[in-house]
């Protein structure tokens, strides 16, 4: 009665097809990542579109490479990486008229806005997370506040940008005293008169806060209550136990969250484009217009052609490598620093 029977072949076919199909769908993710790196890299090395990869295309790059030593043909239409090399990263001129491109200004703008934003957002976000995990307020109110901070993450960045543009004069009025009293510092050296780097950093703070708060709150919540009880039992005050016990125990999550936020800040586009002034002139002052790699792309890509497109893809490649490294670091830090509680 209970003999071993094979399943009907139709059922096995359905099973196998389904398993294969999920594997194929899963590999779409990896293919996409590979495709993004390949495409951006290709456009940075060659001018012209992706279809010139096809051997039968009239402008095929293979023919160009085959005709490498042929004096008659022009060979390949090389793009920004062969043209500008690594000097692209240290050159601050961005001149579409002379077709001379260097990405130092946007790279500086990207790093500076992100660093400033992180410097403000980490204490604010971690402080908020502590406030939400301590018993200052009733549980219900804390959940509501936590939910409100998470909603802030859902507001589209273009809406924040529009709001920041409407608030421009208010921001400028707040910056002016810094210039008048501390104007001898190079970072406050120019008079704030319009969209500038400092405003872009402030808008980034608003965007980073929810990420840092949410991740820090989760990791603080995961610290076992015994640690806190132990600290209280030996006579520690609330803040002694927070600084010496709870934060060290949750540091992996907090640092990981900050790194995730940094990755987000580096690539944030719309709000920054609307409020940074999009100037490609290098300036030490935070109160002068500047640009980030992402804002440069959003601002110039639509009207660019030939080598400028390739230069923009080169800048995009730099941005991708930056965010990639930051995200990898975030994952490694979370794994390395994570304390294990069993």
């Amino acid at each position: 009665m209970f003999t071993h029977k094979k399943r009907p072949w139709t059922e096995r076919l359905v099973d196998h097809t389904f398993i294969r199909m999920t594997a194929v769908l899963a590999s779409v993710v990896s293919l996409t990542v590979f495709g993004i790196f390949f495409t951006v890299g290709f456009q940075a090395v060659f001018q012209g579109d992706l279809s010139s990869l096809l051997p039968w295309h009239p402008d095929s790059i293979w023919q160009g490479i085959a005709a490498w030593n042929d004096e008659e043909t022009f060979g390949v239409r090389w793009g920004a990486i062969p043209h500008f090399g690594l000097g692209f990263l240290a050159d601050s001129s961005w001149n579409p008229v002379r077709n001379d491109y260097g990405a130092l200004t946007p790279i500086y703008g990207t790093l500076m806005t992100s660093a400033l934003a992180l410097l403000l957002a980490v204490p604010l976000g971690v402080g908020t997370a502590i406030f939400l995990t301590e018993d200052f307020l009733p549980q219900k109110l804390r959940t509501t506040i936590g939910f409100m901070v998470e909603l802030l993450a859902a507001i589209p960045s273009v809406v924040l940008g529009l709001w920041a543009m409407a608030m421009l004069n208010g921001f400028l009025a707040a910056f002016t005293p810094l210039h008048t009293h501390l104007g001898w510092l190079p970072v406050f050296g120019t008079e704030p008169g319009g969209p500038n780097l400092a405003m872009a950093s402030l808008i980034l703070v608003v965007m980073l806060l929810p990420i840092i708060t949410a991740v820090s709150r989760d990791s603080l919540n995961q610290v076992p209550p015994e640690l806190r009880q132990g600290a209280y039992a030996v006579g520690a005050t609330r803040w002694t136990s927070i600084f010496q016990v709870l934060i060290p125990a949750a540091v992996s999550g907090i640092v990981g969250g900050a790194m995730l936020a940094l990755g987000r800040a580096l690539g944030e586009t719309m709000a920054v484009t609307m409020i940074i002034g999009n100037s490609t002139n290098l300036s030490a002052s935070w109160f002068s217009p500047s640009s980030t790699i992402a804002s440069l792309l959003a601002n110039q890509f639509g009207e660019a052609d030939d080598i400028q497109v390739s230069a923009l893809y080169y800048a995009a490649l730099v941005l991708m490598i930056l965010t990639f490294l930051v995200n990898i670091c975030a994952q490694v830090i979370v794994k390395r620093l994570a304390l294990k509680y069993d």
Binding site: S30, V33, G35, I36, G263, L319, M320, F324, N327
Partner: peptide, 25 residues
Amino acid sequence: QSIRFGVNVLAGVPSIICGLFIYAL
């Protein structure tokens, strides 16, 4: 594992680069 890694990398790709990728492709 490589797909999980890919998911994490893709989650960190700036949104404007998704646009540039589809533009080129």
